[in-house]
């Protein structure tokens, strides 16, 4: 599970130097614990952070102009290579002969943009993701914290997590149909499962990483269990929880397609699957890219949403 966290850490290292500090935080807490002031979260903190964030957003954009432009260049290069491979029908171990060209995919995309049904597909999927994800976040964080703080809870819950985690979303389809009262509930359940495990494991990891010395210090100052949880454990676990939430968002899009096979009528996963059953390659790619794009955006939104809550880390340095 710590590997999961690390993967995100290293990925983000490359993307954004500012994020580096944010998500490396849990390691920082270990190495710099002597300098760390115990900080809780108050409304004022959150407000300040949001204000600061807004102020710095433009600045950050300017500062990261080179990174952004580099990423854009990389993406257009990929697009260009894809174009070349399809235009020259590359067949060198990997075969591009029947892969649709970027222009074909774009034409298909453009046509769909003018079709109201396409937005229904996207809207329905977003709604499913949101419901499944929020539920997963609530359950995941609660279970993770519980397991992190209680040996008994851990022995009781952890085996379920480990046994259920490797089961692929598609394998759940028949049971999901049988168990849940409505199709929508079955789909949301499968989406939820995708998000749940990264969130649980990262929360557990974060809670476990809380330096015991800080807990003891708070205790000796007369803090109650709840106070310790709110002012010490939660802030210390937050970077890891944030990483879990970001990964969970990505994985829930991942399992969405499996869920939307249950009831094919609307949903971007269904859209892709439907295109497959009719061998409509441009639409398949449109569906894939829309899922990829929405996944990226929503993961970014989660990170952005978590930033104010992580503001304490920067001050701690």
């Amino acid at each position: 599970m710590s590997k999961l966290g690390q993967v995100v850490d290293t990925m983000e290292d490359k993307e954004d130097p500012k994020e580096f500090n944010a998500t490396k935080g849990h390691e920082a807490t270990v190495s710099q614990k002597d300098d760390l002031k115990i900080q809780g979260l108050s409304g004022q903190d959150v407000f300040n952070a949001i204000a600061r964030l807004a102020l710095h957003l433009g600045e950050q954009l300017k500062r990261n102009a080179s990174t952004i432009s580099l990423s854009l260049i990389s993406l257009s290069l990929g697009l260009f290579l894809w174009h070349l491979a399809t235009a020259y029908k590359l067949d060198f171990y990997i075969n591009f002969q029947n892969v649709p060209s970027p222009s074909k995919v774009f034409t298909a995309f453009w046509t769909h943009l003018g079709d109201p049904e396409f937005y229904i597909h996207i809207g329905v999927s977003m709604q499913r993701i949101l419901t499944g994800y929020i539920t997963a976040a609530v359950i995941g964080i609660a279970a993770g914290v519980l397991m992190g703080r209680s040996r008994i809870a851990r022995s009781l819950i952890y085996p379920y997590i480990e046994v259920l985690r490797p089961i692929p979303a598609v394998a759940w389809i028949p049971l999901a149909i049988l168990m849940w009262p409505t199709e929508e509930a079955s789909i949301i359940y499968i989406t939820l499962l995708g998000a749940l495990f990264p969130i649980v494991l990262n929360t557990l990891h974060g809670v476990e990483q809380t330096p015991e010395v800080l807990v003891r210090a708070a205790k000796s100052l007369g803090a109650s269990r709840l106070q310790i949880f709110w002012h010490v454990i939660l802030p210390a676990a937050l970077p890891s929880i944030a990483a879990g939430l970001a990964i969970g968002m990505g994985v829930s899009w991942f399992s969405l397609l499996a869920g939307e096979i249950i009831s094919g009528q609307y949903g971007i996963g269904y859209f892709t699957w439907d295109a497959y059953s009719l061998i409509n390659y441009p639409d398949i790619v449109v569906g894939m890219l829309v899922i990829g794009g929405l996944g990226t955006l929503s993961t970014y939104a989660v990170k952005l949403g978590m930033q104010p809550l992580l503001a304490w880390q920067k001050r701690a340095r």
């Binding site: 389809i173 009831s263 094919g264």
Partner: peptide, 20 residues
């Protein structure tokens, strides 16, 4: 009629569970 796309196995499961 609202038409949905379900593969045979999924459709049969939905019929068995009375969900469609």
């Amino acid at each position: 009629v609202s038409l949905k796309n379900q593969s045979p196995a999924v459709g049969a499961a939905n019929i068995a569970a009375g969900k469609i």
